[in-house]
Nucleic acid binder design. Structure first.
Length: 379
DNA sequence: GAAACGTGGCG
DNA sequence: TCGCCAAGTTT
């Protein structure tokens, strides 16, 4: 006995799948409609896509796959080359874990990825989301792959009042309840495509949504109010100095950061400590070698997830026979592209040597108080 | 459970 | 310019 007013429409997975069949995005790691997915490619793309946009991932994925075509090839590769292929993508622990995971798959699973969420979860770099995504997409298992898109879609669908991240368990339960027995992999990708193209953070295109009718938030006109979340306060600005040393043979001084922590295992020019109270005027005291230091005009700014950074760049030229201090090395300028340099260090080097450095991104947004983009003058 | 962990794009 | 956001995991 349903009264017309009390009639509630539940979201039907079939409606979403039908929408997906017409509007699915064509992505390089995606198998064609009806084709079997390659677990290695699914896994690689899922790791790259963690907290990273499709646009940013695409070129890295193509290059990475060409360089490491299989999990066995990746497992055998030197760590250096893996880090270098990842340089610029961010969250570098992903690259270390990716390499460790490839080795584990070869050593513990004979080169084949395990097919269940539980087993996948035991591998390095694979958490709740990725385990579910790989199980569903690569192996057709029924699993709830809840990423940021799905959190948004589902919280709107059911107008979840609890703010993130507390709402996660509830959202996961609601999502798993929606997953159909057939095509669980397509369903997972459909949910994410919906979140990425229709159910967007701002101004969602509800009129085009296959779930417009059952959506609770939409019914109230409050779709943009979900998901509720607590905002975190921004980190405090840290300052520091970076030292670019150009030797007469056209090589520059680099070192490798400790494996753990910020930019772990990546290459950098020597720097001072980075701290809120750092005084740039004393930077020369932190210099790695004795030289005629030239403090370059402007600064390099960079924003990490948890704090902004402002780097003063000091530049020096040194004679051809200058040895590298302990734990540092000289890299020919032409070989810089083979180093695992994170974005902030590319900015530093471009600031000192000019945007013409073989580094892709120029000074762009990283540089302030503009000096025209020429190289440093002779001192 | 909170904090650490990169980078680029967009409004 | 600035805050938000992007297919999260680890400690």
């Amino acid at each position: 006995m349903l009264t017309s007013a009390a009639r509630v429409t539940k979201p039907d997975p079939a409606d979403l799948l039908a929408w997906y069949d017409r509007h699915r995005r064509d992505l390089p790691w995606r198998a064609g409609a009806g084709e079997a997915a390659d677990p290695y490619r699914v896994w690689l793309s899922e790791i790259m896509l963690q907290q990273t946009t499709v646009t940013a991932v695409r070129p890295f994925y193509e290059a990475f796959l060409k360089r490491f075509p299989s999990v066995a090839a990746l497992a055998e590769a030197p760590a250096d080359s893996v880090m270098q292929a990842w340089a610029g993508l961010g969250y570098y622990s992903r690259a270390r874990n990716l390499h460790a995971c490839a080795k584990a798959v070869v050593e513990r699973h004979g080169g084949r990825f395990p097919e269940t969420e539980d087993e996948l979860l035991k591998l390095p770099g694979i958490g709740a989301y990725t385990a579910a995504a790989v199980a569903a997409i690569a192996f057709g298992r029924r699993a709830a792959a809840v990423d940021g898109n799905v959190e948004r879609v589902v919280s709107r669908l059911f107008s979840v009042e609890e703010p993130l991240p507390k709402a996660r368990p509830l959202i996961r339960t609601l999502t798993l309840d929606l997953v159909p027995d057939g095509r669980p992999g397509d369903f997972a990708q459909a949910l994410m495509d919906l979140g990425a193209t229709i159910c967007t953070p701002k101004r969602p295109a509800c009129a085009l949504c296959p779930w417009m009718v059952p959506c609770k938030a939409r019914a109230e006109g409050l779709q943009e109010a979900y998901p509720k979340k607590l905002r975190r306060e921004a980190g405090q600005l840290r300052r520091g100095a970076a030292f670019v040393v150009l030797r007469a043979d056209d090589s520059i001084l680099l070192r490798t950061r400790p494996a753990q922590g910020l930019l772990g295992g990546m290459a950098e020019t020597p720097t001072s400590p980075w701290e809120p109270g750092y005084e740039p005027a004393r930077a020369v005291l932190d210099a790695p070698i004795e030289a005629r230091w030239q403090r370059l005009p402007g600064t390099v700014r960079h924003v990490f997830t948890h704090f902004p950074l402002e780097l003063t760049v000091l530049f020096a030229k040194v004679p051809r026979d200058t040895p590298a201090p302990d734990d540092m090395r000289w890299t020919p300028r032409r070989a810089l592209s083979g180093e695992a340099l994170p974005g902030v260090m590319k900015k530093v080097i471009a600031h000192a040597l000019g945007g013409a450095a073989p580094l892709g991104k120029g000074e762009k947004d990283g540089t302030r108080k503009g000096r025209p983009g020429r190289g440093p003058q002779a001192s």
